[in-house]
């Protein structure tokens, strides 16, 4: 009765030496995992990641293209899209009563955060966002049926406001397109691209 160290009878039969097999399997798996990392990277544009820093950069725009979705997503859940937003307080004072307003997106979106002090029903952070701290938010949008059958799928804006003093702490404009379908009015698309504030991100890091 012994302890098995690296014996695998079936593989032993297939490849001969178990030690060599062990090393080969190990190297193959390291390589495969790294390739999986690159595969995941290729799917980053499936979702979007945007970073806001108060008070330096408070206006960002995101374009999510449904054509960037991977095959698995297209087959299983093409009508749910996501943007990850990180909001950092790089100022000198704490931010009180921070609220994230989803505006025209409110009926089709849900917003969650990495903090249990964030009330996802009202979008309010029930604690101070101290200087140096970050709030990580996830916005999931359920596209209405048929919405993705056009080039311009949806557009909306997230607003960061101070509820007490009605201060604006930033905005993220979100535009969802389906580039598989042609834009009906190219002129309109150019105009809408130009009107975006701040830097525009297409897709982003997908987790």
């Amino acid at each position: 009765m012994t302890e098995t160290r690296s014996k695998s009878p079936a593989i032993g039969k297939l490849f001969g030496s178990t030690k060599i097999t062990w090393i080969l399997l190990f190297i193959a798996m390291v390589s495969l995992t790294l390739s999986v990392g690159y595969y995941k990277k290729s799917l980053n544009a499936e979702g979007a990641t945007v970073e806001l820093e108060w008070p330096k950069s408070t206006a960002k725009a995101v374009v999510l293209d449904l054509a960037d979705q991977g095959v698995a997503k297209q087959l299983v859940q093409p009508d749910k899209v996501r943007a990850k937003i990180s909001y950092s307080n790089k100022g000198d004072n704490p931010i009180a009563d921070l609220q994230v307003q989803t505006g025209e997106l409110s009926t089709i979106s849900q917003i969650t955060a990495n903090s249990s002090a964030f009330d996802k029903q009202t979008g309010t952070l029930n604690q101070l966002l101290n200087p140096g701290n970050k709030l990580s938010l996830t916005l999931s949008i359920d596209l209405p049926p048929g919405a993705s059958d056009a080039h311009e799928v949806y557009a909306g804006e997230l607003r960061f406001v101070g509820t007490e003093k009605s201060t604006s702490y930033g905005t993220v404009s979100i535009r969802i397109i389906n580039s598989r379908l042609p834009a009906t009015d190219p002129g309109k698309e150019n105009r809408s691209n130009q009107s975006d504030t701040g830097s525009e991100h297409r897709g982003g890091h997908n987790h």
């Binding site: 097999t21 399997l25 390291v30 390589s31 495969l32 980053n44």
Partner: peptide
């Protein structure tokens, strides 16, 4: 070797392709 290979690959991905 598969599970330890995956562990090592998992630890290495942030330096190459980004975290998985």
């Amino acid at each position: 070797p598969i599970r330890y290979g995956f562990l090592v690959g998992f630890a290495l991905t942030p330096f190459f392709a980004g975290s998985i």
